[in-house]
Design a protein around this nucleic acid. Structure first.
Lengths: 195, 195
DNA sequence: CCCTAATGCAAGTGCTTACTTACATTTATT
DNA sequence: AATAAATGTAAGTAAGCACTTGCATTAGGG
């Protein structure tokens, strides 16, 4: 369909950048074409409709299952270190996909379902993994046995809130501030969860 | 200007409800008028423009400074109880204004500044208040002396994340689940912050 | 009963939008 | 050089948008 991949790519990137700022509805195909340096007609020849254009952008750039992999392999049974890894990986993934998430958050009446699902599975999946981890750790006596579900939820929501907060801030949260927050908050949870 | 307040009120409520679902741009004045049970012209006679309409909705329904008042009067120096009050009051205020916040979050290129400011001051103001509280508590030996800024930030972000998570969920988070989360998470922070 | 203010109704304006069509031009392939 | 595929250009379409205008209808207070 597209012999020249750079053209498609440029259009998709322009789509993501503009829509992350202004939302799906407020971003016009004319703008996108201008930002991508192509004619508006080319955009339609490549993707047909505005809706399919966004779908293409999502399916090409969305994040995979890095987090699941992390929980299956990367955690060593040391609470403080493991929470650090989880938190850092989480923010890593989220920040890499911040624009897609921003688009989904702003939403629209005509936003394709596939796009909405991508964002809604955000913290839920991770909460389950973390809850399982805490349950295991608890059975090994390495974590206080209480309510692993809500403990995991609290941790994920804290990081989710931190991420969302940084999304719309004009002055981007610096790398240092994020690191500082991660370390302090992980220490906080480590102390709270230790037997 | 409006001899019949119910008419204005109906329009404002319809505005908030529709825009919270679909966002500012995607909500048409025609829809609003239909939902409010008035003619579209009446809407313009009352508020002039779509922009002024949203401004009116915000200025009439936005939350005051309940949280500041709370910190000046309501806290008693008992960590666990105080955190409980803060958390409960926070979710109370946020849930009462969930639709306005939803509108501001979705955003738009033409969204009035006054509306955006309302939402951006969300956790920041509260973080400062909570940080001050923790500093005081720390000087009284009731809280571990570490980094009150980030401790406060962690607590606020956790609650912010919890709130945002419940915003877009189709199945509203039940009252019970929220209560359960608040109690468990406050206990968590109490243990972590105790000397 | 009259007067005024609020509302409804019908029609229309000018603008923007996503999307199309027909044709010319460039670029790559053979 | 010839051919085909990808892009540009120009123009237009149909629909939807916020917003306006002129006039008829309703309702309440004096």
């Amino acid at each position: 369909m597209s012999a020249n991949p750079t053209t498609s790519e440029r259009i998709l990137l322009a789509t993501i950048n503009l829509m992350a700022e202004k939302g799906y509805d407020s971003t016009t195909t004319k703008e996108i074409a201008l930002a991508a340096g192509v004619n508006e007609v080319t955009l339609f020849r490549h993707f047909g409709t505005k809706e399919k254009l966004l779908e293409a952008a999502f399916s090409r750039f969305h994040y995979g299952n890095e987090m699941t992999k992390l929980f299956n392999e990367g955690l060593k049974g040391h609470l403080h270190e493991d929470l650090l890894i989880v938190s850092r990986t989480y923010h890593n993934i989220m920040n890499r996909n911040r624009k897609l998430i921003s688009i989904a958050l702003k939403g629209s009446s005509t936003l394709p379902d596939s796009v909405l699902q991508e964002a809604s599975r955000n913290p839920k999946h991770l909460k389950n993994l973390l809850a399982d981890y805490l349950t295991t750790m608890s059975s090994e006596g390495k974590v206080v046995s209480s309510n692993p579900e809500i403990q995991a939820l609290s941790f994920m929501w804290m990081n989710y809130g931190a991420f969302i907060s940084g999304l719309n801030a004009k002055d981007t949260v610096s790398e240092d501030t994020l690191d500082e927050f991660i370390e302090e908050s992980v220490s906080l949870f480590t102390k709270a969860l230790s037997p």
